[in-house]
Amino acid sequence: MKDFDRRWIFLAMGIVVVSLFTLEKPTEMPPSEYVQSYYDTIEALPEGSIVMLSADFDPASAAELLPTYQATIHHLLRRNIRVINVATWPAAPPYTRAGFDEIAPLYGKAYGTDWVELGFIPGDDVAMGSIGQSLRSAYATDDRDSTPIAELPLLDGIQDRMEGIEVLISMSAGYPGILEWIAQVGGRYEVPILTATTAVQTPDLFAYYPTQLSGFAGAATGATQYLQLVTVDMPVAVEGEPETLVDVKVNNQERMLIQAGAHMLILLLILVGNLLYFFTKGSR
C-alpha cells in the first residue's frame, strides 16, 4: 500500500461530491441549542435596538459564512433592528455593501438611519479594542461616501465603551475574529456576543458558551440550521425568479447530503487505512 497513489483519493472525493450534487436533495436539519440561542437572542431584541455586525471573513470562507451573513441581515432588518457594520478583514467590505444594497430595500430601510457601513479597520485586536473604547475615535467617516460619522443619525445614541449597542455579532473566519472580539470587547464591556464561524474555528467556541457567547452558528451545518429558522415564514422560492434567502436555504440543505457523503468516504478511508495498518503490521 506504500505505493498507493493518493490521487485516487482525490478522484474518489470528486466523484462522490459531483454525483451527490446532481441529486439536488435538500436535507432538513434540527437546530442545535447554540443556533437556537443565536436566533432567540436576535428575536429577543426590542425593535429599534442597535446591533454591531462585524464582517471578519473573506472570499476563502464565504462558502461557509455568507449564507449566515445574509440571513442575519434579513433577520435584523425584518425585526426593525438597526445595524452598524464594521469589518476587520480587508476583503470583507464588498460583502457588506452587496448584502445591504440587496436586502435593505426589501424592508424599506434607509442608509444612515437603519444601517451604516463603517468599513474595514486595520489593526486586528488593537482595532477591536479601539472600537470598544470609542467608536467615534476608531472611525472618522463611513465607508460608503466618506460622511463624517457625527452626521450619521444612527450613531447619535452610541456612546463610548459600547454603550447603546445591544449585541455584537461577528462573522468570524479566523484571526482576527470572534475570540479577539470576546477578549477585547466582550470581557471588558459586557456586551452580549453572537457569532457565525467556519468549521475550523467552531471547536474553540464551545468553551465560551453560554457565559461569554450568547449563541453561535458553526460551519455550514450551523448556517443551514439558522437559515431554516429565519426563512420559516418566508414565501417558497419560485423557479426562474431572482435568488431569495429561501433559495440559499435550499442550496445549503442540499449541501448537507453531499457533505455527509464526503464524510462517509473519509470515514471509510480512515477505517480501511487502519485495518490495512493492523493487518500488515506483522508482515513488516
Partner: peptide, 18 residues
Amino acid sequence: MFGFTVLGRIALLIERVE
C-alpha cells in the same frame, strides 16, 4: 478539531463544484 477541519474543507469543495 480534525473533524471540524474536514467539515470546513468539504464545504469549500462543494461551493466550488456548485
